[in-house]
Design a protein around this nucleic acid. Structure first.
Lengths: 339, 339
DNA sequence: TTGAAAGCGCTAACAT
DNA sequence: ATGTTAGCGCTTTCAA
């Protein structure tokens, strides 16, 4: 059995109250002599408080729930790191919940984490949420007794603060860069059609063309699934069906697939084909031809989400807020003038 | 305020005891009618138990602490995933603690997690632990009231179960492969000199040479720090100072650095130089020349660590155990006969 | 078949 | 300056 307040009280012949007061550094009352006596015996007996008990009475656990699709994904790992670093500063811990991108697990996790008394939840929702799930999310999130902050992915029906990259602007930047190099026929490799980010990036693509006053190519949408292989396949199709001079892959993994396909075909990047990615994962600057890509400040988003959670914990009446991060195009070697 | 047992008791005109009994599925006692009444009102009122309270009385929180150096590192992220997946099956959650590879944070985290009542801790210690820290680790870990399982890194002075890859064997396999291709002059790019894994892999290297009855090269140790850049620098040095035909990098990141250096010098892999890595990170098979490397079954190690933790929770008297994972060399395109 | 009461370890309002 | 008491939400003996 661990050492408790009671043990220390007994040892020092003082009351539990006094011990508690001292150990919680409430300066008031208590003489210096008792104070130091208590401090010493606590030290000696290796006392440390039972946070379960503290949490039970204070109704606050100094604990935050983090729900994400896949911790092994570079994006979410960095997000988690940002959150944890920020929480550490505030002596809070995070309880991790990995959903394998399954909506029903999002919902279950929210319940479980609440059961565990977390003070707030940071949620990166599953990507493939079909309509039928939305009401359940709404039930759980709108009017939640604790703050819930969504990151990366959100849904307009949800009444909660949200932090995410301005995907549309990111895509706009990427495509504008290609257009300004002189490319006219730029094609996309998208993510899953029903994902928010795909829609937003596609809108950014079209916006860039409109803005430049250049007509859209006849066919420019090639579907991928955010995994590398799909980038490879889509590129094959692109080579067969179009005379595109540039490819905008909606993430770096698919851009990598495109590289592979082009190499197989004996084509060179960027001489035969320019490529832009999205995400700026670690490896995009370690490639033989470093990849031009849109940076996602994942770690920063994590930190800001943590800060926002903290704020809403201390001020539950605070207005829900949507915080948008501005994308930044990193120009490397995979883009050049068409020849 | 959340719905409590008491609320349900009041609503149904039953006692808290009965409600608790039913909701915990203790089949005994209780008539079918009261049972269903309770079940229904619990459902209706959206009751879910306060795990803090449960934990307090049961002295078990169904919660596991995970202490790792860096969740954004592919290795630890996969480890965490394995652990979480396994824990999910057993309705347990993990509390994450990121240490930035700082030993003092390891120690602090152990305390904090205990304070939070975790039932066990899985610990991947900081890599740069100098002697002065060992006693503190011993104090905290040996005779810990809860099981502590170390993964990846351990220390012989610690009395706890440990899971890790057989690094020596991994290095042996890698170097034997190169030797069998006909390479005689194979050099290493190591990790930090004071790290366990570096020592073990170096021993494996030498073992392979001994085993093959081939004399060791005059100079074969080049120091790196497990980061990419150091692989690049070491390779420059290797080209200048040796006539090696193969490089064994102690991790994939440094192997990547070696690739870059060789390309800069206009040399080709594997024609001019064979390269073997260690870890098998995602990207090692996405390179222009896919990397031959030693696989670490990180996810599996995580799952096994979780299982071990569970076992020691249920049987605290169980003998501490050291579990070694057998490495597996993945032969890709970066190794060939010397020419 | 059901309930009362004690207690897990702690905090905080209220005495003294 | 210090102690008494109640209670956070739950489980669990023991009693009815």
């Amino acid at each position: 059995m661990r050492v408790t307040l009671k043990d220390i009280a007994k040892e020092t012949n003082l009351s539990v109250t006094t011990v508690s007061l001292v150990l919680n550094k409430k300066e008031c009352r208590v003489s210096d002599s008792t104070r130091s006596l208590i401090l010493e015996t606590a030290e000696k007996m290796h006392y440390y408080p039972n946070q379960l008990a503290v949490g039970l009475v204070k109704q606050e656990t100094k604990t935050i729930g983090l729900i994400i699709p896949d911790i092994s994904n570079h994006f979410f790992a960095n997000l988690a790191l940002g959150i944890d670093d920020e929480m550490l500063k505030h002596d809070r811990n995070i309880i991790l919940s990995n959903t394998s991108d399954r909506p029903e697990r999002d919902l279950k996790s929210i319940q479980v984490l609440r059961s565990r008394g977390v003070d707030a939840i940071i949620l990166a929702m599953a990507s493939n949420i079909d309509r039928t799930y939305i009401p359940s999310y709404k039930d759980l999130i709108n009017d939640s007794p604790i703050p819930i902050i969504t990151v990366d992915r959100c849904n307009p029906a949800l009444n909660c603060s949200a932090l995410k990259l301005n995907n549309k602007k990111g895509a706009y930047n990427a495509v504008s860069h290609l257009l300004s190099l002189g490319h006219k026929n730029i094609v996309c490799i998208t993510g899953p059609a029903n994902s928010d980010s795909t829609q937003e990036r596609l809108a950014g693509y079209e916006w860039a063309y409109r803005d430049a006053g250049i007509p859209l190519p006849k066919k420019y949408v090639f579907h991928g699934d955010y995994l590398r292989h799909s980038g490879n396949e889509a590129t094959k199709q692109i080579l067969k069906e179009t005379d595109a001079t540039a490819v905008f892959a909606f993430n770096d993994l698919m851009a990598l697939g495109a590289y592979h396909c082009l190499r197989q075909e004996g084509l060179s990047v960027p001489d035969d084909m320019s490529i832009v990615g999205f995400d700026n994962i670690d490896f995009s600057d370690m490639l033989e031809v470093p990849l031009t890509t849109v940076n996602q400040p994942t770690y920063e988003i994590g930190r800001e989400a943590a800060k926002r959670a903290l704020l809403e914990i201390s001020r539950p009446e605070a207005e829900k807020q949507t915080i948008s991060f501005e994308p930044h195009l990193i120009i490397r070697k995979s883009t050049a003038k068409p020849r």
